[in-house]
């Protein structure tokens, strides 16, 4: 059974339909990139997949007994976090909250998982630094470590490279690719960086307030939508 399945689903944003006609499935181990222009409904769909927002119509089902406490999420940063006094370690540790239920304190297992992810993402040297004083790339690593602490199955990323410089962006993409390949963790990423999306993802979902394409990346490159989108992006960047 698919990890996520959307059937004729649509989501609304502030009362208006933001995205509709969604028909796609995500299997375990997939790396799906959701692409589209600003206002195409990407972030709204992300909220839907996180179950922060119910679908307006249609069905969104989670398979393989996927519980909310098994989802890892890398959100876009909020303004409040920019001046939040917290150490990197405290932030990563909070990734284990969902798994705790009502139990008040973290267990040894929780702390071991945290150490493992701190190691994996190279957060060790900055673990006691203040989160707000880290660079953008370091902050994303900390948040990614927190997301990995929350999940073994599904990682949802909302514009993870927004505001990062090109070098750090490539590093982060490599990191996500390695995680997907080595641990078999399913990755769903929202991005408007379509060039990197087709480079790294196994599947593409192209939105423009409705679903334009869903399928394997190599098929996407043959479609009109894919050629067109990559073409305009290229012109825009040149």
């Amino acid at each position: 059974m698919a990890l996520i399945a959307c059937r004729d689903a649509s989501f609304s944003y502030e009362g208006n339909i933001a995205v509709s006609g969604l028909n796609f499935t995500v299997e375990s181990g997939d790396y799906l990139c959701i692409v589209g222009e600003n206002g195409s409904g990407k972030s709204t769909l992300m909220k839907g997949l996180l179950r922060l927002k119910p679908p307006r119509a249609g069905i969104v089902s989670m398979g393989d007994g996927l519980k909310p406490s098994e989802i890892g999420y890398l959100p876009q940063q909020t303004a409040a976090q920019k001046d939040f006094p917290a150490s990197a370690y405290e932030v990563v540790l909070s990734g284990r909250l969902g798994a705790r239920g009502l139990k008040p304190f973290y267990s040894k297992t929780d702390k071991a998982i945290v150490e493992e992810n701190i190691e994996r993402l190279g957060v060790g040297p900055i673990r006691n630094r203040c989160y707000r004083e880290l660079s953008g790339g370091q902050q994303q690593r900390v948040l990614l470590a927190r997301a990995l602490c929350a999940t073994k199955k599904l990682l949802l990323l909302d514009e993870p490279v927004a505001g990062l410089d090109p070098l750090v962006t490539q590093e982060l993409y490599k990191l996500i690719e390695n995680i997907n390949r080595d641990t078999g963790l399913t990755v769903v990423m929202v991005s408007h960086d379509v060039r990197s999306a087709v480079k790294y993802a196994s599947h593409i979902l192209h939105l423009s307030t409705e679903q334009i394409f869903f399928g394997k990346t190599k098929d996407y490159l043959q479609t009109k939508a894919g050629i067109g989108f990559l073409g305009t992006e290229g012109n825009g960047n040149d």
Partner: peptide, 22 residues
């Protein structure tokens, strides 16, 4: 004291906490 960790979670990032089942 009992809910200190949860209070940190919902203070730092409410959306993350909610999405991960808190």
């Amino acid at each position: 004291v009992l809910f200190y960790n949860k209070i940190f979670g919902v203070t730092f990032d409410e959306n993350f906490a909610k999405a991960t089942g808190v």
